[in-house]
Design a binder for these strands. Structure first.
Lengths: 211, 211
DNA sequence: GACACGTCATGAGTATGCTCATATATTCCA
DNA sequence: TGGAATATATGAGCATACTCATGACGTGTC
């Protein structure tokens, strides 16, 4: 009986545990060796499982990285939503807070982001096998940005421009990441300045374009 | 003597010829099968050489694709320079012509661009081995864009904003490519409309920001 | 408790980008 | 012209992301 009770859900428990161990091992290796230099064999070894098992949980090595970015995006959206000071702030401040939150989260992993990010987050091409999950993440992110824009600029005041805005912002986000990755100024202050300046301009264009 | 004369420069001749054959074979395969599905073995076979030889000419498979983009960028810059009608046109028209020229060149190879482009052109990360050549291409391209901006907006009238402009344009270019790749409208007219609209705004921001 | 069923870990195997020691072709020089 | 020196082609071999047939193990039923 006791044995039976203990064994209930053992499989599910184990699955969760293994998944957790893979992610933990992978992130640690990505951070210390970079993405490319981390082999799936090493991930498996560090997680204490067979190499094949990794692929029972993640379709590809990049998929593990994608899981990381899902957490990153979720965390950033929550940070903006849960900050009451931002509730009535202008659009550019909200977006600035969003991006800042993302970059802070990414900072400790800078080393592997350059290699993995763009591959993992780019809009799906018919060639790539990772399209669905990445597309979904992108969709969720863009939906959030759209909400933020609508909060600041009521629908009836929007121009045709606002239709494009989330797409443009997605590209801008990629650009900001690239900028950040190559920013060697102290504390990445150049990036901060760049974000500040460009978001101000962007938001003002959106506002002025209303008709 | 005759033999000797014939053999002079034979090596150099052969080198050029083989290089040409590799590029030709690779492009044809990229176009028909896509980038990922094209193996280096197949490229070598189609070019009539051993697999190892490919790597005597190009450091990596992606490097072959990069060569293609070099041609693409060179061709587009020349197209803008050699068009007398553009000599005195406003900035946005020059940039529009530049991008249009690039997209036209890329059109027949759309299938493999999604897979290869971003990898090949992104700014170097310390991890990537392709940094130097890609960086150089990017540099040349940005220098050209800077020239175009200076032609339209004299140095003394520029704001701090114009300092960022080429970097921003580079990101914008990547974005435009992504947009184009996923544009299923007839004749890619959505992309054309997008370029037109966004460049107009961009140029006007640059002009207004002068101080 | 034992048996049947389904799920999941396993690791040898596969495909492929790339390397490297060797063979071959070309050039140079006497 | 012949032979040394150099450049280049070659393909077997390596590393590694990913697959798949197999067996071990958890789960539900009697």
């Amino acid at each position: 009986m006791a044995t039976k009770r203990r064994s209930i859900g053992r499989r599910a428990q184990n699955k969760q545990e293994i998944r957790r161990r893979i992610v933990k091992a992978a992130l640690s290796l990505f951070q210390s060796k970079g993405f490319d230099a981390t082999t799936t064999k090493a991930i498996a070894r560090k997680a204490g499982i067979a190499e094949g098992t990794v692929f029972n949980y993640f379709k590809t090595k990049e998929d593990i990285a994608l899981h990381f970015f899902e957490q990153e995006v979720d965390q950033a959206m929550a940070a903006v939503r849960n900050n009451p000071r931002l509730r009535k702030a202008p659009l550019e401040e909200k977006l600035f807070a969003l991006l800042n939150s993302q970059l802070e989260y990414l900072a400790p992993y800078e080393r592997f982001i350059g290699a993995a990010l763009i591959h993992a987050l780019k809009p799906a091409s018919p060639l790539g096998p990772f399209s669905h999950r990445a597309q979904e993440l992108r969709h969720r992110y863009l939906g959030f940005v759209e909400e933020l824009i609508e909060e600041s600029i009521p629908k009836r005041k929007q121009s045709q421009l606002t239709f494009f805005a989330p797409e443009v912002f997605w590209i801008y986000y990629l650009g900001a990441l690239l900028y950040w990755l190559h920013d060697s100024s102290e504390g990445k202050q150049n990036t901060t300045a760049f974000l500040d300046r460009s978001l101000t301009i962007g938001a003002s264009v959106l506002r002025q374009a209303r008709r």
